[in-house]
Each structure stands twice: as C-alpha cells, then as structure tokens.
C-alpha cells in the first residue's frame, strides 16, 4: 500500500494536465478550452484550494461552491461528456454532480482521498448511472487516441499505469480503455470488437488481474 502522501502526489495532477495532442482532433459538441496550466506547482495550489473549498461547502458556503465549480467543472464536464456523448445529458449530470457536492461535501475525507479524485469519482459514477438508465448504446464515433493511455505530459502515477496497460495484449488494453473512458458494457464492447461476450468478460478479468499484479498494489 502506498502511503497517503504518495497517493496524494499521484492524484494531484488531475485538474492540471491539459489534454494531450491527440485530443485536439476529437470532434466535440462543445467548445474546448485550451487551458495550459504549468504542471505541478499550479496543481498543488489547486489541490489545496479544492480541499479548503470542499470544507467551506460542507459548512454551507455557496461562494465556495462557485469557486469549486470554477476550478473543477471543465475537467468534470470533459469526463461526463466523454461517457455520455450527448451534451444535454452531460449538462443534466454535471448539475447533479454539483448538487451532490453541495449535499455531501461533509463526507469528503482528505486523509483517504484527494479532493480531485473524490470529485472525479462522483462525476464518473453519476455519468455511468445515467448512461445505464438511458441505455443509449455506445458512442457513435470513437476518437483515435483511445488505444494509448495518457498524453505527453504525464504524472508518475499515469506513467506507471500506462506501462502496465501497454504490457497488456493490444485488444485487451483497448477493451479496458473502452470500458473506462466510455462506460461501454461487455455487450457493447463485444459488438465493437467482434468478440463473444464471454470472451470480452474473460479478457477484462484477465487484464484486471494482470494490471493489479503489474502495479503491485
């Protein structure tokens, strides 16, 4: 198990890393902001701000919620929209995310998880729940970069994870990333890659076991 300090290091870049070069080619419905933050020092500040803002939100501070929205919504909207693939659904879910933050900020425990990871988890979970409820099927078009994890500027944690992902057979890696980034079910993945569902399932389980072993945690 990594120490909490290590984990925080690993996750603190979440809102600071701009999209990799491949993402520029992805067709998106909304305008993209080209936020180019200068790596770690900024991210650490954002990290501290987020934790403090969450504590204030927990105390009922609406202005703090707005600051939090300003600091995190661009990233969370990106995550949510990629999963849902439709702007109207993404808008509704992002609203849910910040209403959820308002109601549950007091449950955030900075000793266990970094604030950006806590927010991203909330956004991902709500987006996946919505996706399953609407049963919209898989996205029409996938960008070309999904086969590789991460962009040019990567945190140490992402480099480690990328190395482990790259050690998987290429189809296995593709399936893992299709699931993680787009929330595709085994059935949807099966249609996309032309494998039987059972084979997708065993590939996923095998990849997960291999990843866990490779990451050594």
């Amino acid at each position: 198990m990594p120490s909490p300090a290590d984990s925080d290091d690993d996750r603190s870049l979440l809102f600071a890393v701009p999209g990799g070069p491949r993402e520029a080619s992805r067709p998106v419905a909304c305008q993209k902001t080209q936020v180019t933050l200068q790596a770690q020092s900024v991210s650490r500040m954002a990290h501290l701000d987020l934790a403090a803002a969450l504590a204030r939100v927990a105390g009922g501070d609406r202005a703090a919620l707005e600051r939090l929205y300003g600091a995190s919504s661009v990233k969370l909207y990106g995550i949510v929209q990629r999963i849902l693939g439709r702007q109207d659904w993404a808008d509704a879910v992002l609203e849910d995310v910040y209403v959820g933050v308002w109601q549950h900020a007091g449950e955030f425990d900075g000793a266990r998880v970094s604030p950006d990871a806590w927010l991203a988890r909330l956004a991902r979970t709500l987006a996946l729940d919505e996706l399953r409820r609407t049963a919209s099927g898989s996205p029409q078009e996938l960008p070309s970069w999904y086969e590789e994890a991460g962009g040019a500027r990567q945190s140490e944690a992402l480099r480690r994870l990328s190395a482990c992902l790259n050690a998987l057979p290429s189809e296995g890696r593709k399936i893992v990333l299709l699931a993680y980034h787009y929330g595709l079910t085994r059935e949807e993945i099966s249609k996309r890659v032309g494998w039987p569902v059972a084979m997708v399932r065993s590939s996923l389980r095998g990849s997960l076991a291999q990843l866990k072993e490779c990451l050594g945690q």
Binding site: E23, S73, Q87, E95, A149, Q154
Partner: peptide, 25 residues
C-alpha cells in the same frame, strides 16, 4: 481499483460547460 485507475482521468479532455449551468445548480 478507483485508486489504481484514477491516473487515467488525467488524460480526460477538458471541456467548458455551457454558461448558465452553475445558475441552475
């Protein structure tokens, strides 16, 4: 698993939400 896979979110695109969304919140 959330901890192990969280670094992948670094590569998530950044997209500005539509103006006015926070007012709805």
């Amino acid at each position: 698993w959330e901890r192990r896979l969280a670094p992948l979110l670094e590569a998530a695109p950044e997209v500005a939400p539509p103006p006015g969304l926070f007012d709805k919140v």
